[in-house]
Design a protein around this nucleic acid. Structure first.
Lengths: 144, 144
DNA sequence: TATTGTTATACTCTATAACTATA
DNA sequence: TATAGTTATAGAGTATAACAATA
């Protein structure tokens, strides 16, 4: 049909983004899932605490663009697995400071290294210019 | 920490892709959801039937990279809302050919047009070269 | 035996409301 | 009144196994 545009689902950006994100997530999630039994939010919480040091759940929410209910559950699970500890602070007894344990730091170091390897593998099929253009565009689209 | 790399979640491709995909999906899903009460798979099934004409569920699975259980449920719902009809074919009585009704074609025409508008709005903040580079890279990452 | 399609089930992810305890 | 965090619940997305009907 020449009068109809050639618009195709595979050119529709939300579809393309979704398919690419799914492919990328599937690969990496097996790492934190099989090695440490973590879900996505738990990996993100572990990452932020490992990368930026101890902080409250509120700070985690702000830094990680995570809702407080997600953080609350992820923290409880990471605590249960001895990857982090809570510490109350006298200044404000509503909040608790979250810090990784030695086991948590080890898991972070492992996953952090794996993430870098994985990231490089993902973009192995792209030229450096393509890689850079991709990330720039994604930052804009993600409104980061 | 200078000895530690600057690797950041916001530079991690699976994270970037996920955030961008989420932003993009949220915008468009309100269209097919509020206008037609559709879920994602239903919109995709409607799209393929509208774009490529009638076909069996099996063909839909192959074209749309959808699992047969998703298609089965989406087809049942679209049928219930009178957006498509089934037709048995004598050659193979296991399969049914799916075809949009007039209402289905109207919904497709509307959403198809809206999708093009939405796609252009999404990439309004990107240069044509950025846009092209983005789509090329996503096709590779999505393994399309 | 293999294929088309359906149903059941479970897990993950997201979103929101309601609640507590502190401030 | 507002804030930090928890619990409950529902909707949506994903994945797999088991099944019926037909080839």
């Amino acid at each position: 049909m020449p009068s109809e545009s050639d618009f195709d689902l595979q050119q529709f950006l939300p579809y393309l983004l979704n398919q690419a994100a799914e492919q990328a997530s599937l690969g990496f999630q097996t790492l934190y899932k099989t090695r440490y039994g973590m879900l996505r939010t738990e990996w993100r919480v572990l990452f932020h605490l490992g990368r930026y040091g101890e902080m409250t759940a509120k700070a985690l929410c702000d830094r990680g663009r995570l809702h407080k209910t997600k953080v609350s559950r992820a923290v409880a699970k990471l605590e249960g697995r001895r990857f982090l500890q809570r510490r109350t602070v006298p200044q404000d007894r509503r909040a608790e400071v979250l810090a990784l344990t030695a086991a948590g730091r080890a898991a972070y170091a492992d996953l952090h290294a794996q993430a870098q390897v994985f990231d490089r593998q993902l973009t192995a099929g792209l030229s450096p210019a393509q890689d850079q253009a991709l990330r720039q565009a994604l930052v804009i689209l993600a409104k980061l």
